[in-house]
């Protein structure tokens, strides 16, 4: 009996931590979709890029933190480059959203193949310091996991305040809200699109580093994160910051319990089932308002 309660607590904590990581990619996706109207299928690849870059930089002898900082900068640059080199070509076109979806779809597969070329199909893990364990609710939990979960939460708070109290953050919300109104008050949309892609890639990039520290990365890591992020954003109701976070935690919990009690091969099945049931009853998402 004691053992099963331990298992429940441990599975829950793991789920919440995994959910927090997913939230970062999902918020990045939601931000880019809300502001630039791009359903960015390559969103998870920024996470993969940051994760693999951190790993490779550490291979050259760099410490975890400087390697992570450079990797995040690379992810942000990759985000801006996606907008500048690909998405910017589609502005003003009739099927803008479709074009940008397929273009980012192609980008995701190209990047995945690139990773397979460089790192092979083996799993890669970012070496991180052992921090020992802490006792949470009577269960010993790897402190690194807790630190990572809290780190992800802190990133979300930073982004939240960024969109509340900085001019650029407010401008992003304004464009997502009413793009005509944003142009009337003189906001430079094109510039903000680039910044949004950069910030979105940066925030999703942190997922990759945390993920690479806790789990191991493979060429399909980016794709998997994208799939989870799409589910979360659809289920959470678009543009709902805390809604997205809550659904991320829920998905993390489902994922964790499925992996522990049913076996990890059922993970995606259960998560998609959750999405199906949710959308059947709440077509506008868990926290979405009914269309006005």
């Amino acid at each position: 009996m004691g053992l099963s309660i331990h298992l429940l607590v441990e599975t829950s904590i793991n789920g919440l931590i995994f959910g927090s990581l997913l939230a970062l990619t999902a918020i990045g996706l939601s931000l880019v979709f809300g502001v630039v109207d791009v359903p960015n299928f390559a969103q998870g690849e920024y996470a993969a890029l940051a994760g693999f870059a951190t790993y490779s930089l550490m291979q050259t002898g760099l410490g975890l933190l400087p390697a992570a900082a450079i990797a995040l900068a690379l992810a942000a640059v990759a985000g801006v480059a996606t907008e500048h080199l690909i998405i910017a070509r589609f502005y003003g076109r009739d099927q803008y959203m479709l074009y940008s979806f397929f273009a980012t779809f192609g980008l995701a597969f190209a990047f995945e193949e690139g990773v397979r070329h460089v790192y092979g199909t083996s799993f890669v893990k970012i070496p991180a310091p052992a921090l020992g364990s802490i006792n949470l609710a009577g269960v010993d939990v790897n402190a690194l996991r807790v630190v990572t979960g809290l780190g992800a939460f802190a990133m979300l708070l930073v982004l939240y305040f960024y969109t509340r109290y900085t001019h650029t953050g407010l401008s992003m919300r304004a464009i997502a809200d009413d793009s005509v109104g944003a142009r009337i008050i003189g906001l430079n949309e094109r510039r903000l699109y680039k910044i949004t892609f950069g910030v979105g890639a940066l925030i999703s990039g942190t997922t990759g580093i945390f993920y690479g520290v806790l789990f191991s990365m493979s060429p399909t890591t980016g794709f998997n994160l994208t799939a989870f992020a799409f589910i979360i954003v659809v289920a959470g109701g678009l543009g709902k910051f805390f809604g997205t976070y809550a659904v991320s935690l829920l998905v993390g919990l489902f994922e964790s319990f499925t992996a522990t009690f049913l076996g990890s091969r059922y993970r995606l099945f259960i998560v998609f089932l959750l999405l199906f049931v949710l959308l059947a009853f709440r077509p506008n998402g868990l926290f979405g308002r009914v269309a006005e």
Partner: peptide, 12 residues
């Protein structure tokens, strides 16, 4: 410009 049918930012 104060636009026709206001374009205030509803979520802000």
């Amino acid at each position: 410009l104060v636009p026709e049918e206001n374009h205030v930012f509803k979520d802000m």
